[in-house]
Simulated scan of single mutants.
Amino acid sequence: MSENVILVEKKGAVALVTLNRPEARNALSRALREAICETFDTLAEDDSIRAVVLTGSGDKAFTAGVDLKEAGQTGFALGADGGNIDMAKSLGNYPWPIIGAINGYAITGGFELALMCDVLLASTNARFADTHAHVGIVPGWGLSQKLCRLIGTSRAKELSFTGNFLDAETAERWGLVNRVYQPEELVPAALQMAEDMTKTQPVLLKKYKALIDDGFAMRFGDALKEEIRRSAEHAESVSAESVEEARKAVTERGRTLNK
Rank of each mutant, 00 (worst) to 15 (best):
K157H: 13
Y94P: 09
I49H: 03
F128M: 02
A168P: 03
K89P: 12
E185Y: 02
T63D: 15
N178I: 01
D41I: 02
L19D: 08
R33Y: 11
A240C: 05
I137R: 10
W174S: 09
G152H: 04
L257N: 12
L91F: 01
A168C: 05
G140H: 07
L7D: 08
Q73P: 01
M87Q: 14
A129D: 08
R25M: 07
K209D: 03
Q192C: 11
T42C: 09
S242I: 10
I98K: 11
A126Q: 00
K199R: 14
Q145F: 15
F76P: 07
F220G: 10
F165M: 12
P183T: 03
T108L: 04
A217H: 14
S154W: 13
R50W: 04
N93V: 09
A171T: 00
A133Y: 10
G142N: 03
A246G: 10
E184L: 10
D47A: 14
T198V: 09
V53T: 00
R253P: 02
S90A: 15
A122L: 05
E158S: 05
P22M: 11
V250N: 09
T200C: 07
F76Q: 07
M116T: 11
G175D: 06
D196Q: 14
F111R: 06
K248N: 12
W141K: 04
L191G: 04
E252T: 10
I102T: 08
D86R: 15
E172G: 03
G75D: 04
R50M: 06
S239T: 15
R219Y: 13
V243T: 13
I98H: 08
E236Q: 11
T42Q: 14
A122P: 03
T200Q: 10
R21I: 05
N178A: 11
E227G: 01
C37T: 15
A168N: 07
A15L: 04
F76S: 11
E34V: 13
K248L: 12
V52P: 03
A194Q: 00
A24I: 08
A27G: 11
A51H: 09
A80C: 12
F220T: 14
S160V: 13
V17D: 00
V5L: 08
N20D: 14
F128I: 02
D214T: 15
E9K: 14
N4M: 10
A80G: 15
A24E: 13
M1C: 01
P97L: 01
V187Y: 00
P97H: 02
S231D: 13
I36C: 12
